[in-house]
């Protein structure tokens, strides 16, 4: 019997996610030496050393590396904008079809969702999830809001002459807070996506095929499975 597959992600989603990873890696690598030179200064040295002879005495290798890191950081922001702005605008046209809206709007609903997450990720049970569980929905919202947060504060820092010193200081603090929240969120996201063998089909779907085996959907996202069956 041939295995049946269900489409989970569109080609556009796969493409955007892939570039989100590239640009996020660039943001982290170039931001880390600025936030903690003691631990991540080696990144600046690695970036600056090869070009340091070209710049004579204008910069030390380390400072040149930081300068290069800052420019890569900014160019990455432009690069990411070219990917996510058109995608985000297109998504707005199908806002009603988004599958990241909560199923219900109450505190008890949220606590039930969190309980289901604990069942799924800690007790290894199979709650009745739809296409996305509460954790995946919250992560998607947090990522979207986080991107806007980092752009808003980052643009103030980039074009600081257009703002008051008090605004840059606040933007810098908020950018730092955003950095830590992003690192923590990404650590959890990457871990859950890659380190749980039972969830590997999701990884294949997000990076390669865009599809999930029907049996996986039936077991891990039963409510979504039922919905798909009802639509057939």
């Amino acid at each position: 019997m041939t295995e049946k597959f269900v489409r989970a992600f569109t080609e556009a989603q796969i493409w955007v996610h892939k570039h989100l990873i590239h640009f996020t890696a660039a943001f982290l690598l170039t931001g880390l030496p600025l936030i903690s030179g003691d631990w991540f200064g080696w990144i600046a040295t690695a970036l600056g050393y090869p070009l340091s002879n070209l710049f004579g005495n204008a910069y030390s290798a380390y400072s040149l590396g930081l300068q290069i890191a800052r420019w890569i950081h900014r160019l990455s922001a432009l690069g990411l904008a070219t990917v996510i702005v058109p995608y985000g605008v297109l998504q707005l046209f199908r806002i009603r079809q988004w599958e990241i809206w909560p199923e219900c709007w109450s505190l008890s609903c949220l606590t039930r969702g969190i309980g289901e997450l604990i069942d799924y990720y800690v007790r290894k049970k199979r709650p009745n999830f739809g296409k996305y569980n509460v954790g995946q929905k919250l992560w998607t919202w947090a990522a979207a809001i986080g991107v806007i947060w980092m752009y808003a504060t980052g643009l103030v820092l980039w074009f600081r002459d257009s703002f008051s010193p008090a605004t840059w200081e606040l933007a810098h603090t908020l950018h730092d807070i955003g950095f830590f929240l992003a690192v923590i969120g990404l650590a959890v996201h990457v871990y859950l996506a890659t380190m749980i063998p039972e969830h590997r089909p999701m990884l294949d779907a997000m990076f390669r095929t865009g599809t999930l085996p029907e049996e996986f959907v039936k077991e891990h996202h039963p409510k979504w499975y039922e919905k798909l069956k009802a639509e057939e």
Binding site: I35, S36, A166, E169, L170, H172, T173, D176, I177, F179, F180, V183
Partner: peptide, 15 residues
């Protein structure tokens, strides 16, 4: 205040 807060709270707590 913002610099002081980043230095004494945001970064240590963040790490």
């Amino acid at each position: 205040p913002a610099v002081s807060f980043t230095r004494s709270v945001v970064r240590p707590v963040g790490w």
